[in-house]
Each structure stands twice: as structure tokens, then as C-alpha cells.
Design a protein around this nucleic acid. Structure first.
Lengths: 342, 342
DNA sequence: ATTGACAACCAAAACGTTTTGGTAAAAAAT
DNA sequence: ATTTTTTACCAAAACGTTTTGGTTGTCAAT
């Protein structure tokens, strides 16, 4: 069924049928109803390729998912799934096409964006895993592609983003530990060129400062994108060298898994001899034993907000928006309270 | 840059430029080279929407990813990622578009397939998570959509598939246990309407039979799609009621995680007091402690084979193909040998 | 009665390709 | 020398929409 035969059956012009379905006001409500009814009956829906060609709009959102670097870790991939799951409803109701590409290295990633924009001609993109300075943003701005980022960059303002308030989150974690009388607190971050890692470090430092605890660089370490074993070894060494450490804060799930291993190896009972606290995700909330206390990262919500922003961007006088999620701490018993000697 | 201006610059007709790039033989090699060179210079690539409209072919592969049921488990999602990662290279080199949809329930899933086929007009689909009888297959056959399945159904033959040899895998696991003198072997499966679960049960039963061990239904249990806690409870009860069980075979990663918890709770040391063996995946291979001995499931390889089959389907006299992966056992120390009293 | 505004419709152009059905010139076969 | 085949090219149609720039008829305002 195409619009031509449909319009013949209706004894209307193609134009009128198109505009009736498109919701234009130069069609009487009576005819619009008639058109809609018959369209439904014949299960008509415009050929997407013809429509995209004619209108010059693709209603397509591009998303590049790197399977290397930070995301080589399965756990990060699942986080992204959560985010994407948050977008599904809107994608349905708004009839948006989601265009996803997997890439295995930086070269492929660069080509993937070029392909999305110049070849597939998507008109919108969701960006994630932002670096402190991220060349993709200028690239997209330059080519006039609408986009929303999950995460922010340093400096720039003229774009739309959703993000977890990373500095606040880390403050929250630190205060939670302070309240339980911890003051020898280790922080295992990932490399700081990812902006969220940078922001979390800031949160760690500002919380220490506010609480008048001086920063001890022996308690701070970063890992690259290696698996949990690497974190486990690093944390183990840190704990051996600094046995006074009573709590470990982890920036990602896989470092948290490493922390658990390290503590197990050293026979330190989590939630009793030592505390671990981290950022939420599917693994630490149910798969590790014990499950870990963490700040919740509302990924689905962020996904929803992101897609909503993208949709609103079609409006004439759109202004850049942002959404900053403030998390809470979910207590799962992996943090113990230190009894003060009085 | 479009084909019109490109052809003008070349002083050739649009037809010739199109056919030069399309690899047709009615263009001299000399002009073809000239055309390709200039196309590259101006970074020309045909507008996909115009091209799909004109040719009636979309070069688009549809994939529906359920986030409910079996896949509500994060761990299953990551398995699917592995599979998809295997397809990326081909998708690049063949310029295929990958069309992915997330769905949250059965109703959405059904609509997703309809949308892919009737609205988005994808011409190829990859199917996964097959049931014993799976209505999607007849649906696709009926509408003449090319597809490849990851997994098989019972009965039907006229379709192309890739799959792990589940029965063989389970035989392998069981023999591995027999060689280590286990004969009280529990099997924790997932519900048997998933065909792979059914096949694995067959493998369990045939291995027992070949080894002249009678099937004890107290040692066999199925879980639905609940999280690992549910399996943990179930396995714990089974072990309490049947303390003679020396080895547990698990069908999925999340039941394996449950098994670990159950053993920990009962203070049975894995790889010493009791054995756990399962099917491979990102979690059991590195995130659990201990990591679990498992048969490897070459998901990437299966993804590659699947996309290759889809590409070959364009050939004129295509015959249905299939690929059955035979796995090996990866020893990670979670299976112990029972010393026979002699 | 005339003008202006508005409602409701439509024909034709445009979008950028691929494909069909040719033609002219060169080469090969008779 | 003529006919046939092959090579290399091309104009125009087709794909199924959206959008542009109308027209016609009705009604209210003058």
C-alpha cells in the first residue's frame, strides 16, 4: 500500500493525504479522520526512504558504542545498555530510528562518526564516555549535527547534556564515610582524561578539604582500562603498604570487583574489617558477595532525558538544556562504622 | 556532493557514474578509475535514502534486543554484545546498516518485528533467544524476509542458523566430571522452552545414560528468569537435601553466580569440597571468585558466521547454511577430582 | 455589490539515486 | 564489404514521498 493508491481510494489528491497524515491544518478534520481510518485499515505507513529523501530529515539517532578502551570491560557495556533502555519508550512513541555502531578501536570510531554523519546522514547523535576535552563535540558543532551528551566536557557550554553529578556523588560517599568515622580513605579512580573520573577526583579532594583531612597521595591511585585483576593487585599492594586504610572508594564497577578480590586475598572481611563503596551498576548491586553499598547512577532516567532533549531540539527556538542527576546512597552493608575510642 | 554535480565535473552522464561506482561491466576500466578517483576526492557517497528508494534494497539488518525475560539478566545482555561484536568487521567492509531495537515486553517485541519489516523495510534479520517452537520463524518465512538465527528450533529445517552444539557441550562437561570421578551431579537449567536449555538437558540425560548412571530428578532443577539470588536459594536447598552432590552444572552465568553464593553460604569450598562448571561468559571467566571452569561459547565467531551467511544470501541460488560450534573446556580450577577409595 | 480573508483542496516539482531500454562507434565475424 | 557482436556510453523513467505555489469556493466585512 502506497500513498498513491490510498489517495485514489479516498478520491483525494496525494498532497491532501500526505498533509492529512502529517497533521497540517489545511485539511479539514472530517477528511483527516477519513484518511487516518483508511490508512489504518490498509496498514499504510510512508516508505521511510522516500519520506527521508523528500523531507531531507532522517529522524535517526546515531550512537557509537566502543568495545575497546574503557568499554572493553563488559561491565561498562552493561551500563550503557541501561542508559539505552531508558530511551526505548520515546523511541517507540516518536517513531525514531536508532542507529547503533560497534567499533573496536579509535580509528574505527572516528570513521564511524563520519559514516553516521556523511553517509547515513543521521541528524542527531548521542555522545557518551566524554573526555575532559573531547574533539567529537567540536566536530559535531562544526557540521551542525544536533547532539546530546551523556557526560560533560571541561570548558564548553554551548551544547546539551545529561550527567550524573559526579563531584556531588563523591562528596556524598565521603561524607557517608566520615559519619562512620573513617578518615583513612583510599580512592581508586580510572584515568583522569575521562571527565567523570576527573570530576570524581575533584569530589574526593573537596570532601577531604571540607573535613580538614589532608590529601595523602599514597591513598589515591588510578587504573587504566585493564580488567579487575589489575585493580586487585594494585589495591592489595596499597593495603599492604598502608594497613591503616579503613575504606576504599571505587570509581567503576570493575575496580570495585578488584577491591573485593584484594580484600579477600588479605583476609579482610568487607563490611567489618574494611569498607568498600562505589558507584552503582548491575554487578555490584547483586553479583558480588557481598553486594556493595554505592551511590545509585540513574542511567535509565538519564537516557530518557537525553532522548527527550533530542526530540525537543526540533523546535524552532531551542535553547540548550541540561540535566544533572543527584544520586542517593544505597546501603548494602559493605561499609562498617568505626567505634571511636573515647 | 551529489551524483549530478559529480557527473558534470566528469563530463559523464549520471548513469555512467552510478554504474561505474556500482561495479557494472558496461563501463570501461579507464572511466571507472577516473570516476572513483574524483568520488573519493569529493568524499562522495550516494545518499542512502535515495539509493534505497530507487533500488528497493535497504542493506539493513534488523536486530531486536529484549530487555525482559531471560535478558532482564544483565549477564545475558553482555553475551549478546559479544555476538554483535563479532559482526562489526563485516558490517564495516560490506557497508551494512545495523538496525537495533530494544524492547521491554512481549507486546513491544512483536511490534518491533512488524515495525522493522513493514515500516523500516529491513530486508534481513538476525534472530536469537530461540524457543523450542518459535513463531517468529514462520512469520519471517511468510513475509519472505531473509534471516539467520543464533540458535535453532525443534523440527524446522528450511532456514539458516548458527549455534553452539549444546548437547555436545553438556556431554563434554559431564565426561569431564566423570573422568574426575563425579557421579552425583546436579544440573541447574533454565526453563526448557528456550531451545538451548532443552538441548542441554538432552545432553545431561544422554551423558548419564551413556555412563550408566540413572537420572535422579532431585538433582535436576530449572529456574525461570529470576536473578542469581533465586538460583542461590534453590541450589542451597538442593545441597542441604542432597549433601552427596559433588558437582553442579549450570546452564547460564547467573545460575552459576547463584551456585557460588549457595556454596559460600554452606561453607563448601569450590574446587575442593564441591565443583561448579558452567557455560562461558564474561562474568564467570573473570569476575567471580573463583573464576569458573566452563565450556567456551565462541559468541564472536558465531556472530561473524551469522553475518557472513546473511551477506551470502544475496546470491542467486542460495542454499540454507548452518554452523555448529564445538566448544572446549576451559579449566579454571573450580572442578576437583574425587579420590577413589580403593 | 465588492473586497478580503480564510478554508480546503490540488498539480507539479523536487529529493538523489538506480534501472530500463536504448544508441553510436568499434571490433569481430562472415 | 557487409553483417553481427561487443563495448561504452546515455536520456528518461521510476522509486514514494514532501513541499511549493498555487486555485476555487465560501463567508464576513465593507
Amino acid at each position: 500500500m502506497d500513498i498513491k493508491t490510498l489517495s485514489k481510494k479516498l478520491k483525494l489528491s496525494i498532497t491532501t493525504v500526505s498533509r492529512a497524515l502529517g497533521g497540517y491544518s489545511d485539511v479539514s478534520e472530517k477528511t483527516r479522520l477519513k484518511v487516518k481510518k483508511l490508512a489504518k485499515k490498509y496498514n499504510y505507513s510512508p516508505n521511510p526512504y522516500a519520506s527521508r529523501l523528500a523531507s531531507g530529515k532522517s529522524k535517526t539517532v546515531g550512537f557509537v558504542l566502543p568495545l575497546y578502551g574503557l568499554n572493553a570491560n563488559t561491565l561498562n557495556q552493561t551500563s550503557i545498555f541501561d542508559f539505552l533502555a531508558g530511551t526505548t519508550n520515546k523511541i517507540y512513541s516518536e517513531n525514531i530510528q536508532f542507529f547503533m555502531t560497534f567499533v573496536n578501536n579509535a580509528e574505527e570510531e572516528k570513521r564511524a562518526y563520519e559514516k553516521l554523519i556523511f553517509i547515513e546522514k543521521v541528524d542527531k547523535i548521542i555522545l557518551h564516555n566524554l573526555k575532559k576535552k573531547d574533539s567529537r563535540i567540536n566536530f559535531l558543532l562544526k557540521h551542525n549535527i544536533k547532539f546530546v551528551t551523556w557526560g560533560r566536557v571541561q570548558g564548553l557550554k554551548n551544547y546539551s547534556w545529561v550527567d550524573l553529578d559526579n563531584e556531588y556523588s563523591t562528596n556524598l560517599i565521603m561524607n557517608y564515610l566520615f559519619e562512620r568515622n573513617h578518615d583513612k580513605i583510599a580512592y581508586i579512580n580510572i584515568v583522569e582524561n575521562y571527565n567523570f573520573a576527573f570530576q570524581r577526583k575533584k569530589g574526593y579532594l573537596s570532601a577531604l578539604k571540607k573535613n580538614k583531612i589532608s590529601y595523602n597521595k599514597k591513598y589515591y591511585a588510578t587504573v587504566k582500562t585493564e580488567g579487575p585483576e589489575h585493580s586487585a593487585k594494585l589495591i592489595k599492594n596499597m593495603l599492604i603498604a598502608n594497613p591503616e586504610i579503613s575504606a576504599i572508594v571505587c570509581s567503576t564497577e570493575y575496580t570495585a570487583v578488584g577491591a573485593i578480590k584484594a580484600c579477600n586475598d588479605l583476609n579482610k572481611k568487607i563490611g567489618k574489617d574494611i569498607s568498600i563503596i562505589t558507584f552503582d551498576g548491575p554487578v555490584v548491586e547483586s553479583l558480588t558477595s557481598p553486594a556493595l553499598t554505592a551511590v545509585n547512577h540513574p542511567r535509565k532516567e538519564l537516557g530518557l532525558k537525553a532522548i527527550e532533549m533530542l526530540i525537543n531540539m526540533d523546535g524552532k527556538n531551542y535553547k540548550h538544556q541540561s540535566y544533572l542527576a543527584k544520586p542517593k546512597i544505597i546501603d548494602r552493608g559493605s561499609v562498617h562504622k568505626i567505634i571511636k575510642a573515647s
